[in-house]
């Protein structure tokens, strides 16, 4: 009888659906109940390559670490609403509204942003200053043969070629680092555009993610874009040597990013720490000027404090050794010391 067959089939289907729903519900309930050795985090995609290396590593010290790279804004929202143990953000908490007022902010990783370009027929590594870069990104310098670029690259035969400016179309910590740098070196940029994970770009086109930016630069003769140092190195594109305040032109690599982190200054009381465009000093002679700390934000009062402290103390020490092969420079001792004090505030 086909009709009762259909009924039976529907019944079976409904049963399966019901069982599945119950199972999902039960799974949800059990994961909500926090077991002692687990840490959940969400946020920055910038720090994701480093953090994903940690997931396996911390399981050996008995911590079950999970992480979703949902973006800095999402990370701050998640920690503010206590949906996760750790919120990860490339911009300091003060940049967000609403923000987490009951959190400690811990700078826990350090990386740099490289400026890439494609200019066919020019073999040399071109030099650039932040001021000229700002003018390019504001659409005021539009040709490679512009005297401002030529003056920095004497002896190089620059072609009469339009500059194609490429920026991120999505919100990103790399953009935060990049615009923070431009705001530091150009008052016009600071007042007209400003600093942020996304800004109202005065010129150019957008690409999604570092891959989108680098593929646009790759396919456009005359293109300029930016990406985190690891991505830029992997993309096999030419990179500018950027002039630092000590007057030297430096290339984004581990050594120059490390040089930028040798700080006299300690993090601010709230834990924020900007190291773009380090001061003019022989100490920073080899410092790359576009570097940034990225932060982990934790609620001061947490039911999971013991595990969190264990994890964070591991992350700022042993965890740092995983960094160099993906262009994350280990934290300098002064910052580790500061971070330990911050971690101690978690109760």
């Amino acid at each position: 009888m086909p009709r009762s067959g259909i009924v039976r089939f529907t019944l079976a289907l409904a049963t399966v659906a019901l069982v599945a729903a119950l199972a999902v519900g039960a799974a949800g309930a059990s994961s909500a109940k926090r077991t002692n050795g687990s840490v959940s985090g969400a946020g920055s995609t910038f720090v994701a390559p480093l953090v994903s290396l940690w997931i396996n590593a911390v399981s050996s010290i008995g911590i079950n670490f999970s992480y979703s790279a949902i973006g800095s804004g999402g990370g701050v929202a998640a920690i503010t609403n206590k949906q996760v143990d750790l919120g990860m953000s490339d911009a300091p908490l003060t940049q967000f509204s609403p923000t987490c007022t009951t959190c400690v902010q811990i700078p826990w990783a350090l990386a740099g942003t490289a400026v890439m370009y494609r200019l066919d027929g020019v073999k040399n590594h071109l030099h650039l200053t932040g001021q000229v870069l700002a003018k390019i990104y504001m659409g005021q310098i539009t040709n490679w043969s512009d005297p401002a670029i030529a003056a920095l690259n004497s002896g190089v035969n620059l072609p009469n070629k339009a500059i194609t400016v490429v920026h991120r179309s999505d919100s990103s910590g790399t953009s935060y680092n990049f615009t923070d740098f431009l705001s530091h070196v150009s008052s016009a940029w600071k007042s007209q555009v400003g600093t942020g994970t996304a800004v109202a770009w005065p010129a150019g086109i957008g690409g999604k993610g570092s891959s989108g930016v680098s593929s646009l630069v790759h396919s456009t003769n005359g293109g300029i874009g930016y990406a985190d140092a690891e991505y830029a190195h992997k993309a096999h594109l030419a990179m500018f040597s950027m002039k630092n305040r000590a007057g030297k032109f430096v290339f984004a690599n581990l050594k120059s990013i490390k040089a930028a982190s040798v700080l006299d200054t300690k993090p601010a009381a709230d834990g924020s720490l900007s190291i773009v465009n380090p001061p003019k000093s022989s100490k920073y002679a080899n410092a790359y000027p576009i570097c940034t700390y990225t932060y982990v934000d934790v609620q001061k009062s947490s039911g999971n404090a013991a595990t969190l402290k264990k994890f964070l103390n591991w992350a700022i020490t042993t965890g740092q050794t995983y960094g160099p092969k993906i262009f994350f420079v280990p934290l300098p001792a002064s910052v580790v010391k500061f971070d330990k004090k911050q971690i101690a505030k978690i109760k």
Partner: peptide, 8 residues
């Protein structure tokens, strides 16, 4: 493009 990273 912007849902994930909005700051405000």
């Amino acid at each position: 493009a912007n849902y994930q990273g909005s700051q405000t």
